[in-house]
Lab assay of single mutants.
Amino acid sequence: ATNIVGKVKWYNSTKNFGFIEQDNGGKDVFVHKSAVDAAGLHSLEEGQDVIFDLEEKQGKAYAVNLRIK
């Protein structure tokens, strides 16, 4: 899925991951530091509006192509 809109539920910059809540009511999506770095960001803030693509690997969904809304 592409261009999914959501809000950062939480992001832990020490542990380098967090979760994004989808605006469409879907399951929360894992986001890793690598996606944050690829977006040219240092971190994510709770409540921040983002747009992302959804990829699945080994049955787990995660956010890629992250951008600030």
Rank of each mutant, 00 (worst) to 15 (best):
K27H: 13
G18P: 00
S34N: 07
E21V: 08
V50N: 00
R67E: 07
S34F: 11
I51F: 13
Y11E: 01
V8P: 01
V64T: 12
N65I: 02
D49E: 07
K9G: 03
I51N: 15
W10S: 05
I4H: 06
N16C: 05
S43V: 15
D37R: 12
G26L: 14
E21P: 01
D37S: 14
N16M: 14
A63P: 01
Q58K: 12
Q22D: 06
D53W: 04
K27T: 14
E56A: 11
D28E: 11
S34T: 13
F17A: 02
K7L: 05
I20G: 00
S13Y: 07
D53L: 03
K60G: 08
V31Q: 00
F19W: 14
T2Q: 10
V8A: 02
V36P: 01
G18C: 02
E55H: 09
A39D: 02
G59S: 13
E55P: 02
E46A: 11
V29E: 01
F52C: 03
D53I: 03
A39N: 05
A35R: 05
Y62H: 07
K7V: 06
K7R: 10
H42P: 13
A61E: 10
D49K: 12
K27L: 13
T2A: 10
E55W: 13
D28C: 04
H32L: 04
D37Y: 14
D53Q: 04
V36L: 11
E46N: 08
A1Q: 08
H32V: 03
A63D: 00
H32S: 07
Y11D: 00
G47D: 09
K60S: 11
D53H: 04
G18L: 02
A63F: 01
G18I: 01
F30Y: 08
V5W: 04
F19A: 02
K15P: 01
V36D: 01
K33N: 05
I68Q: 14
D23L: 11
V8L: 04
F17V: 03
N24H: 13
N3T: 05
I68E: 10
F52N: 00
Y11C: 02
D23T: 11
Q58V: 12
V50R: 00
K69R: 08
G26H: 14
K69A: 03
E55R: 13
Y11R: 01
Q22E: 08
N24R: 07
V50A: 05
V64C: 04
G25L: 09
G6T: 01
V64N: 08
V8M: 03
G40D: 14
V50E: 00
T2I: 14
H32Q: 03
K9Y: 02
G25E: 08
K60H: 13
V29W: 06
A1N: 11
N24T: 14
K7A: 12
H32R: 03
E21T: 15
I51Q: 09
S34E: 11
V36F: 05
G6M: 01
G26N: 14
G40P: 02
V29R: 06
G40V: 04
V36G: 02
L66Q: 00
A61T: 11
S34M: 10
G25P: 09
D37C: 06
H32K: 03
D49G: 12
G47L: 05
I20N: 00
